[in-house]
Design a protein around this nucleic acid. Structure first.
Lengths: 343, 343
DNA sequence: TTGTAGGCGTTATCAC
DNA sequence: GTGATAACGCCTACAA
């Protein structure tokens, strides 16, 4: 009532009818005379009446609001996902409440608490890097509360998920490098406690195996934080000395790849002639760097869309009953640019 | 009640006390026996009681929710702003409802409507490119509804705003180019119906004037959509033929600059030797492209923080009474990288 | 120290 | 066709 907003009562009083009549008139319920309807609607228009969604939420025990829990908004990938979420939610009359966890478990807990307090109808989750125990989600799942996990999946049964085929994406990328004639392909991997990190590594390993290349365990180097600087340092160290140096890099994501490329360039290696590079995620910058970075694109917007569609279906009890698992896996696409084209 | 959540009533019934007693006990109101308090709190804990924020909103006519209206979430700048907003809101117990307009006025209207329906306590706005009439905001401002405009400002009096000093940022950038010895500096400008576009152009113009360089009106080329491709095409055309070609580009933002750089490179111009380039906004990719792009960095996160702080103050009626204008202007920082260092 | 009642805005149910 | 009432969950002035 900040705005001195008109309520149904105000309209009722002004027209000397009961609030229920006004309510019915506004919603074109049967059994209201056309005359009353008209009067009510006109006055509503005039007073700029706007239904109070909070009162409706209380009344209906439904808020038409969904929550989104995300590690970091500023990651390009996540921002595209949010964009997709927002589109579908908006189109269906749902609001989006956003919380970023900054990869902190504590923040994940409190975000969920406030969201539940706010009676969200369901939640889309990509959990934090710190999250290893999923009790807070299990409790909700046990109550059949609608949750869709996207991008990062917990090790739980009967959950609804949307991911990309990270394994296949990685596999394709490495096969591509092999086809281009690269032989000593290293992997700058992501944290191995996230499924996503494991999947990409597995794709890398299987690609090498399928080409009959023996895997050197030293070729897998973890980049836990995933910053540009980290991978710059790692790459510099790797290529500075020693023999039998790698001739290609498959990076866990584009930032890591970019850091590696900068290191290579500062060491005067030529990309792609001396070293080929492929990243993951198709960040916005990837096509603009020099040479343009080959990468595996993930359909972020689509992930957001799909996850939200599923969530809304669960909310409306069409799908996702207890015990029913739905797992959507979206395909990646290998974008071949200059950084990996030797031939 | 999706979750079969316990309510105050449930607790009251179980303990054979009245709901008001429970309410008071939970909030440590004076005049409740320690014994009752303890019993109530224990049971609340046990039942996993969680206050219903919706009921509270209705009761108090205050939702502890703020709205954010933003053109595009996937713009790096905006995503950093959102991040700042989210941080401050979260720290103060406020929720953030997010709507992106995709630069559509119609969407801006409907987003505001639903947000108001949801009884948001205030709103942070960066309006769409299509918005030229501000009636919908004026109406709210007239009702003393808390609004903070950021980044893009409407031409209205007595409003609360947070921006960066676009003029100064542009001025600094162009002076820098001049100091580097560039003489024929063109400006790939933004849409001139946004203040931001005008400010940057004015900074450009004044910098040239202050250096005694006569401005050639043909040196200002508008890039209305601001895509990479657009600026690639414009730049290609510009540098392909004709004499007395420009020797530097000041671009309205980094994407435009990146498009221009790609065009220059494909025409075999050397950056920065033949042509210097400076962008605006310090997008994430800017330091990673080749050569790294000099740019004017805007403190996006800080904008979000400041705007939210102001909004919360207005909501709590500490500042921002009718007729009081607060305009925060944050300073930009020129980041000199390779793309503009000739000397 | 605790209980009662009314109300925030809306609508479903029953009554006239 | 329309009105009165109760209820969603919570808080608080007032009463006891």
């Amino acid at each position: 009532m900040k705005l001195g907003q008109a309520t149904i009562k105000d309209i009722a009083k002004e027209l000397n009818v009961s609030p229920s009549t006004v309510s019915r008139a506004l919603k074109d319920y049967p059994g209201i005379s056309d005359e009353t309807k008209k009067k009510v609607k006109e006055l509503a228009e005039q007073l700029n009446y706007r239904p109070n969604a909070v009162a409706l939420s209380l009344r209906k025990s439904k808020s038409f609001t969904i929550g989104v829990i995300i590690p970091e908004i500023v990651h390009f990938f996540f921002s595209t996902v949010i964009s997709g979420i927002e589109e579908v939610a908006f189109a269906n009359g749902y609001n989006v409440i956003l919380c970023q966890t900054n990869e902190k478990l504590s923040r994940e807990h409190s975000s969920i608490e406030t969201m539940l307090s706010n009676q969200i109808d369901g939640v889309l989750v990509s959990f934090s890097r710190e999250t290893t125990d999923f009790g807070h989600f299990e409790k909700l799942l046990g109550l059949n509360f609608p949750i869709v996990f996207f991008d990062r999946l917990p090790d739980l049964e009967n959950i609804t998920t949307v991911t990309v085929n990270d394994y296949q994406g990685a596999f394709d990328a490495v096969i591509h490098l092999i086809q281009q004639g690269y032989k000593r392909i290293i992997h700058l991997s992501g944290p191995q406690n996230l499924a996503i990190g494991k999947m990409r590594k597995d794709g890398y390993l299987d690609a090498l195996k399928s080409a009959g290349i023996k895997v050197n365990p030293e070729w897998i180097i973890e980049c836990p934080t995933g910053t540009e600087k980290e991978s710059f340092d790692i790459t510099t160290k790797l290529f500075q000395n020693g023999e039998n140096k790698p001739d290609a890099i498959f990076a866990h994501h584009d930032i890591v790849a970019a850091g590696a490329m900068m290191a290579l360039k500062s060491l005067k290696y030529k990309i792609p002639e001396d070293v080929g590079v492929v990243g993951f995620s198709n960040w916005q910058f990837s096509s603009m760097i020099d040479p343009p970075l080959s990468t595996v694109s993930q359909p972020g917007f689509k992930i957001g869309e799909e996850a939200t569609k599923l969530l809304l279906e669960m909310i409306n009890r069409k799908k996702g009953q207890i015990g029913e698992a739905i797992n959507v896996v979206l395909e990646t696409e290998l974008l071949v640019r200059k950084s990996s084209v030797k031939i």
